[in-house]
Structure formats: structure tokens, C-alpha cells
Nucleic acid binder design. Sequence first.
DNA 1: GGCTTTTTGGCCGGTTTCAGTCAATAGTTT
DNA 2: AAACTATTGACTGAAACCGGCCAAAAAGCC
Lengths: 269, 269
Amino acid sequence: MLETRRQTLLDLIQKRGFAALEDLVAAVGVSESTIRRDLEALEQGGVIRRTHGGAVVGAETRELMPAFEDRADTAIAEKRSIGRFAASLVQDGDTVLLDGGTTTLEVAKALVGRTVQVVTNSLPIAQLLAPHKDTDLILIGGFVYPRTGVALGPIAIGCLEKIRVHTLFMGAGGIMADGIYNSNLLLVETEQAMMKSAHQVVLVADHTKFGKQALTKLCGLEKIQHLVVDEGVSPEDRRQIENAGVLLHVAPSDVKPRLVQPEEARNSQ
Amino acid sequence: MLETRRQTLLDLIQKRGFAALEDLVAAVGVSESTIRRDLEALEQGGVIRRTHGGAVVGAETRELMPAFEDRADTAIAEKRSIGRFAASLVQDGDTVLLDGGTTTLEVAKALVGRTVQVVTNSLPIAQLLAPHKDTDLILIGGFVYPRTGVALGPIAIGCLEKIRVHTLFMGAGGIMADGIYNSNLLLVETEQAMMKSAHQVVLVADHTKFGKQALTKLCGLEKIQHLVVDEGVSPEDRRQIENAGVLLHVAPSDVKPRLVQPEEARNSQ
DNA sequence: GGCTTTTTGGCCGGTTTCAGTCAATAGTTT
DNA sequence: AAACTATTGACTGAAACCGGCCAAAAAGCC
């Protein structure tokens, strides 16, 4: 009975992400003290974290689940603006292929709610888009790389052979004058298969990627048609890209932040 | 500057699921009052929800993302015990294929941390297992069915043709004397492909599934070797299953709940 | 440069929550 | 049946949090 109640509480907390003490009392119909003790025990078990007034899902669920998203710190603002701009290149009804990575994840975020067909091998992107009925989602299978949550390998390549899309949005580990690089051979092979499946390739990369040379060469610059970058890219780099025949798009950093303005927030209540 | 700070706060809250006011103050280095105002504005925007002592990610992120997991209410305790028992049938090093569904999700939960190779077409299961390095994860691609988060269709079947596993854990919509049923044709076709890829089929189903007949017949009972159910299955149903040559396992409802006991919790600090 | 508007930080009264204690109840063992 | 333990519910002082207020600082405008 006791364990059943605690499981119920745990489920409730995990489902809602956060549950107020008050809610939990209402849910199981016991006293506040008992709930407190339950939370104490569950916290000791490590599955939840207590807060003033309730409890939230613990490190186990939260730190492990979106583990791939955690090191998305570097140049996050730039990536966001790049994502927004890249999404503006997509028209409703288009079929797009989204590579894995933090920059392409921002593209996906900007595509939420749009009526497009999205193909991806990225678990975080799939998770983001799966519940939206406006967006058709096709998943590329394969061996899932734990660190980043992308599906790679022969199975992924096999899936890609059966698919044709209009635009591929691809990330990169590094961009040099002679081409694009990425860190992992398995990843590069899969990305090459992606390129074969797409009519048009759009590379998305923030300024930190320029001049970086990662382990494996993915392709030359002539293979890509568009490159979306942030404002922090040096003029020399820009010229080099344009000389290679790539259409360079610079995403403005001051994209309208669609958040409620403070006065608006205060007045609207 | 203001918007940048709010985005930072938002990112922090979304990344951690919950952030205490105190933490947020420490993160951006402004006064408590300012943070309060920021949270107020963000809550008006609907992206977060305030709580006593902090803020959690709002309905937008939480209700849409794990939308598939939300209606897992019916017979959840039974499904959990079934999941635990089913996982005990797996040996370390095995290769298992997990179908989509709430019952198989419980199997996956019970497999967390085990050194097994898991193949699945279920997004929730993939999300659960992806970060665990002990578990090799292979994803089956395909068209993602929004309601349940499983990949189906020709692509999924194509992936499955290249894969061989030892044990398939499969869910069902309904179990009749003449066989197993499920609701969706696309789903049934994919599950049939799964069965072809597996040496051994284990059906997991709670007692509510018995006598239910869903739209499409998946297969006869002779195609499955094991069936794991909860204690709520009637003797007649049990006999019928066993007569069909299926090994019936009844998962005990009082499986050791591995949670810290209250006294243990209080003493261990 | 001066003025207005916006944003920020500190403070206070009121409310809620927390941790700990204790008695009562329910369940178990002898 | 009696004794014992585990669990629960109520109470209390202390601490934390909230909302609102006002003054100072910063930013924008003329």
C-alpha cells in the first residue's frame, strides 16, 4: 500500500515534471505529513528532487534523458538565430532532411508547427517534432550514438537510399577552404548518404566552426548550395565561401524575440 | 540585454526542468526581484510555470513532448510488474527487439542499466535507453505515428529485414482464442515483420486485453512462445492460452519494489 | 545637458512551507 | 489476545517565499 502510493506519486511527478505538495495530497488523499515523508524517501532514492512546495523529476530522469542536449552551451544564441533563418528558407509542404546536432536542432525548433515533412536521424529532433500533427515525421533508423543521440551506420544508410528530399540541413564539425569536416567516420558516411538523397544542401554552422579541421573530410564546398552562418564570421571567411560558389546567408542576431514584453505582461492580467 | 537574460533563464529552466529562484539569481547575477519579474513575464508568455521557490517548464514543452506517454493510466501497476518479469527473461548480452506500447515501455524501464542490445521502433523507449552506455541501442526508422511515437511502414519493414534478434517483446491490442489482434494495419504489418526477425516471441499483455478483438488480426497463438500477464487473468483464459501451447508466465503483483525504505532513508543521512 | 521612461534593487507585511515532535491508529508477531 | 512495530495525522516554531511598494540607477529621447 505504501509502495503503491509512492509509485503513484512518482508517476505523477514524472508525468507532470513538477507536482505541488498540494496536488499530491489531493491525488492520493493522505495527509500532508505523509506526502512529505514519501517525498523524503523518494529523494533519498534519487529519483526525484524536492523543492519548496513540491517535487520535480530527479537527476536520473533529467540528466540522463536529454544528455545529448546538455553541452549545447557554446554559441547558443548564434545557433538559435541561424536556426530561425534556416527555417525561413523552408516553404510549407516542403520535404526536409535534418541532420543531427545542436544547430540543426535549432532549425527543428524553428520549424515546430509548420506543415512540412521532416526526415531525421536525430533522436532529440524526433522527440521534439513527434507530437506535432502538422509535421509529418519520418525517422531514420540505425545504431544510436549515445553521446549525441543520432542514428548512424549501415541501417541508416539503407534507410536513406529509399528516401528523396528537397532540402538537407546539415551541421558540420569544421569548415576549411577546401571543404567540410566532421569528427566521426560513421557520422560522415551517414551524412554523405544524406547528401545523395537531397536535391539541395544547406549547411548550418556558427562562426566557431570556421578554420576548424576535424578528423574526417565530409565533402568539398562545391557540394553544398547554401550556408547559413551568424554575424560573427570574418569578411575573409565570407569571401572564401562565396568564391567557392556557395550562397552565403548571414542570420541577423537581433531576430525578434517573440516573448511577451514586461509591460504587456503586467497589463494583460 | 533584458531579453538575453530571459532567454538564459528560460534555457536554464528548460534544461534542468526546474530551477530555484536562488539558482537563477546565482546564474545571471541580478537581484531576486528582477528574477521574479522575469519569471512573471515568462509565465505570461506561457513557456514556464511558476512554483513556490522557482519555476518549471510549462505546458508547451511538457504536454507536447511526451504526449504518447500520457494516457498510460490503465492498469499501470500491472504493466509495471509484467515489465519487471519480462525483463527477467532476458540474459545479459542478449539481443532483444522491443515493440512500441506502454507495456513494452515498462519492459524497457526494467532493462535500464542491463548490458543488452536493444532494437526498437519506439521513440519513448529509444529516448529512455539512449543515454545508457551499457545498452546498445538500434533504432528502427519509419513514418512516426504521432499518437504513440512508433516508427512504422515500409521503411521500418525494410530496416527489420536486415536485422535478426533473439527475443521480441511485443504488445497487443487484444487477445482472443484464435489469435492476437491490434488496431492499426500499418502497425500490424510492422509487427509481422518484427516476428520474422526474431527467434522467439514474447507477448506482454495485461488482463484487460483478454477477450478484446481489435481491427486487424496480427497472428495466431501458435506463432508466439511466451506470454507474460498479470494476476488478473481468469483461469479459463489461462487454460485457453496454455492449451494453445504458449508458455504462460504470471507476473507477481508484489515484485520487490526497489525503493529506499523510509527508515533506511532517514537513517542513511 | 536635462527630462522622461524603463529597469533594477532593497524592504516589509503577510502567507506558505518546512522540519521535528508526539499521540493515535493499523498491522504484525508472539 | 496481547505486545510490539510501522505508519499516519495533527500541531508548532522557525524559516522561506511572495507580492507590492518606493527610491535609485540606467537607458532612451528631445
